[in-house]
């Protein structure tokens, strides 16, 4: 009888558990993913490419890229600042700030979109003022960007705060005693220590920004060719029974997911340790 470490199970149990995990993974992840690709190509390559080249689709892709292109840098800046503030300083209201950062996570995406309609919509608090100045937020691009910024708010901060908390402030203090100013301390000491956590946070933030449906759906108005992001466009196509086109666009989103995962694994492999901690 071979010796095995006390903390593992016997071979049959291990096989059972691994088998169960694979089954669940297949059912909930692999199968749906495969279905997306199969359905996308059901009518052949040409239909697939045509769906992606369609004007409405291109506009949707463009809008998605803009929304992500604005919200990711903004939330990265915010996330780094908030994490710095929260982990290096002690002040009244600190825990409140941390809870507030998590707010977009706790709120249902539909509500996350609705609040902006209530604020900036025609009948909203600022509605008349915006109307008077001919500024369109709801049912236009600004609204979509705002909604996307809101729902992806916490990602970078949430990734950095535990990381920076674990790392402590010793190195920053050492840098200060050696004569470094704030700039030096941040760019030469803090940032290199958090770079992988930061990258991971940015990856997640981007994935969510591009894939957000609920909040954006509420503020967008679904104006074809104007205020549809890619996920919204997929829904529009599906509702019009253009299944293959819908799945074709969906493959883009599926690719995004795979690329995100791939980059994350590459980062972990490349650095030789997990993006968490260290």
């Amino acid at each position: 009888m071979s010796q095995r470490p006390v903390t593992t199970e016997s071979a049959p149990v291990r096989l059972l558990l691994i088998g169960a995990a694979i089954l669940v993974l297949s059912l909930f992840l692999l199968l749906p993913l495969a279905a997306v690709f199969v359905e996308a190509f059901r009518k052949g390559w040409e239909v697939f490419l045509a769906s992606l080249h369609d004007e409405a689709a291109l506009s949707a892709i463009k809008l998605t890229l803009i929304a992500a292109g604005i919200s990711v840098p903004l939330n990265t800046l915010f996330g780094v600042s908030a994490a710095w503030l929260v982990t290096k300083f002690r002040f009244k209201g600190r825990s409140l700030l941390v809870s507030l950062i998590d707010l977009p996570f706790a709120v249902s995406p539909v509500i996350a979109g609705l609040v902006w309609v209530l604020l900036f919509g025609a009948k909203g608090w600022f509605g008349p003022w915006l109307d008077a100045h001919d500024i369109k937020i709801i049912f236009a691009m600004p609204g979509i960007v705002i909604a996307t910024v809101f729902v992806t708010f916490p990602f970078v901060a949430r990734e950095l705060i535990p990381l920076m908390e674990t790392q402590g402030s010793d190195q920053e203090e050492a840098a200060v005693t050696l004569g470094a100013n704030g700039w030096h301390v941040f760019f030469r000491v803090t940032l290199p220590n958090i770079k992988w956590g930061l990258l991971y946070g940015v990856l997640l933030c981007n994935a969510r920004a591009m894939g957000e449906f609920g909040a954006v759906s509420v503020v967008s108005g679904h104006i074809r060719g104007e205020t549809n992001t890619l996920p919204l466009h997929v829904e529009v196509l599906y509702n019009e029974y253009q299944f293959s086109a819908a799945f074709a666009c969906a493959t883009l989103l599926a690719f995004l997911a795979l690329i995100t995962l791939g980059m994350k694994s590459a980062v972990e492999h490349f650095t030789g340790h997990s993006t968490k901690g260290h």
Partner: peptide, 9 residues
């Protein structure tokens, strides 16, 4: 510092 606080990277 007690735990050296060397710059890891």
């Amino acid at each position: 510092f007690q735990h050296y606080a060397l710059f890891r990277h």
